[in-house]
């Protein structure tokens, strides 16, 4: 039996009727056509599908869309403001935090939570907090540099890391 859910995605309320077995990632990609969130492993390992749900980074391949009923979701599409990249996005571009870009939306959504929890992270904290994200291209150094740079940029601007959510 289908259920009607109402989810606020990137600030917009979306009401849709969905099958209970529909995964959140497919709701985002196939129903709402927000294809920035990727499916990598489909088995809760790689983090490519990471989105923010009620302020927490979650793997949307491991959540049913019905579980997100009433939730606030931010996807990678919701980070830029008025055409300006979010500081984490800008830092990834600047510091070679990506090559093919497949893992990048998930990395950035994980980095966003990381900087909310640890605004001035050590390298160990960055590595530890990215444990749920796998990149097959960069060897991670660029990603870590980008996150360090984003932390500095956000601190300088006095910008709350939550900007964009």
């Amino acid at each position: 039996m289908k259920r009607t859910i109402s989810v606020t995605v990137n600030g917009k309320v979306r009401r849709e009727s969905v099958e209970p077995r529909l995964l959140l990632v497919h709701f985002l990609r196939d129903v709402l056509r927000l294809t920035g969130t990727h499916v990598g492993c489909d088995t809760s390992q790689c983090g490519a599908c990471t989105v923010s749900m009620n302020g927490l980074a979650v793997k949307s391949c491991t959540i049913l869309a019905v579980q997100a009923d009433g939730a606030e979701i931010t996807t990678i599409e919701g980070l830029a403001r008025d055409g300006a990249l979010h500081p984490i996005q800008a830092a990834f571009r600047e510091h070679h935090g990506l090559q093919c870009g497949f893992c990048t939306p998930g990395m950035i959504m994980a980095a966003k939570q990381l900087l909310e929890r640890y605004p001035a992270p050590t390298i160990e904290q960055i590595r530890d907090q990215l444990d749920g994200n796998i990149c097959r291209c960069t060897g991670y150094h660029g990603i870590i540099k980008a996150i360090e740079a984003a932390a500095r940029a956000m601190a300088e601007k006095g910008q709350a890391p939550t900007t964009g959510s």
Partner: peptide, 9 residues
Amino acid sequence: IADPQVRNR
């Protein structure tokens, strides 16, 4: 346990 995303759920 696991990783931060999994610990959130």
